[in-house]
Amino acid sequence: MENYGPDTYGELNADVYDEWHAAHDPGDAVRGLLDLIGQSPAGPVLELAVGTGRVTIPLAEAGVDVRGIDASEAMVARMRAKPGGDRIPVAIGDMADVDPGTDDRFGLVFIVFSTFFFLTEQEDQVRCFANVAERLLPGGRFVLECPMPDVARYARNQTLETFEVGIDRVRLVAVRHDPARQRLDGHHVLISGNGVRLAPAFMRYAWPAELDLMARLAGLERVHRWGGWRGEAFRGEGNYVTVYEKPATA
């Protein structure tokens, strides 16, 4: 963890992020968010950890007034190089601060994929919820997509998986699991003719009930929990979507 900060993942993964995650189509997330935005108070929308704009750019193309925040200048530079990406306001900063550089209040704030768990301390996750609640309009919503923790996959609290095998390259993911701290410390390892490349990804997972408690502490109420962006039943596996709401009287 030495020298690992909020921007480390993005700075070391920006040039390969879209390539390595190309199989994960963000289309369902975009469509699901558009539905939720239509049900939320009128106001701008904020994405935490905007990254390379895989979700934000399609939302902007659909006419949403969307803003972003990300700790990594390298990731945001990738977004701004894409068509339409340079027109989206993005602040550089820690997503737990939920500070887009304006005093705006938002009708909806969201974070997708597994990115919320990149806040590696519980106190930072709690702080993120509290700051989101502060920036939401009454009746506004906080939408999180998170993976259900699958601790059974870590034999002796570690795992090594092969994600790609080619003629001239192999990509592995090595992870150590700390169950007491709910921590996953991992590396993408790319072995190729150019040598060995390491891309760290350190995370702190949280259980659904723990997220609900963070929301209650922030004054938010859970209104939906689905097994995916299409409103599937939540079965405690895979990625799931939770929608929290700020009371309209707040």
Rank of each mutant, 00 (worst) to 15 (best):
V132N: 09
A62Q: 09
D212T: 09
A233Q: 14
Y9T: 00
E19Y: 07
A180E: 13
V64K: 02
L46V: 01
R127E: 00
H188S: 15
A152T: 15
A74F: 06
P83Q: 05
G93A: 10
L220R: 11
D104H: 14
G107L: 05
D70K: 04
A71Q: 10
Y244C: 13
E232M: 04
G219D: 10
A218R: 01
R153K: 15
A174K: 05
V223P: 04
I57Q: 06
V30Y: 03
G166I: 00
G227N: 01
L160T: 13
A250L: 04
F113C: 13
A250W: 11
E245N: 08
D178Q: 01
V151F: 14
K246T: 09
A23L: 13
R80T: 11
D99F: 02
M148Y: 14
G101R: 02
D15G: 11
W207I: 09
I111Y: 01
R31K: 13
L33R: 10
A96W: 03
L136S: 10
T242I: 14
D150C: 07
G238A: 03
A74V: 10
R153N: 11
A62H: 08
R31G: 07
F116C: 08
R127M: 00
G43T: 06
T120S: 10
V16T: 13
G53L: 08
R169E: 02
L48C: 09
E47I: 00
L211G: 03
T115D: 11
Y244H: 12
E19F: 05
G32L: 04
L59G: 00
P200K: 12
T242R: 12
D150K: 10
I111G: 13
K246R: 07
A218P: 10
E232P: 03
R105L: 15
L12G: 12
R235L: 14
G85R: 02
H21V: 11
R216A: 15
F142V: 05
V170W: 04
Q158W: 14
G219K: 03
R216T: 15
D124M: 12
S114V: 05
L137E: 11
D18A: 10
M95P: 08
C146H: 12
E2L: 15
P58S: 03
D7K: 13
D25A: 13
P89Q: 01
P89I: 03
E73Q: 13
F142P: 01
R225S: 11
Q39C: 11
R54W: 00
A29F: 07
T115I: 09
G101A: 03
L172C: 02
N131Y: 05
G38C: 09
G27V: 10
E11P: 08
D86N: 12
E73D: 12
A74W: 01
L48R: 08
E232T: 03
M75T: 04
L172M: 09
P26R: 04
A22K: 06
I92C: 10
H24N: 14
E47S: 01
R127S: 05
G139M: 05
L137D: 10
D7Q: 14
T242A: 15
A248V: 14
Y9H: 00
V196W: 05
V170H: 02
G140H: 03
M148A: 14
P179K: 08
D70I: 12
L119V: 02
H188Y: 15
W20D: 12
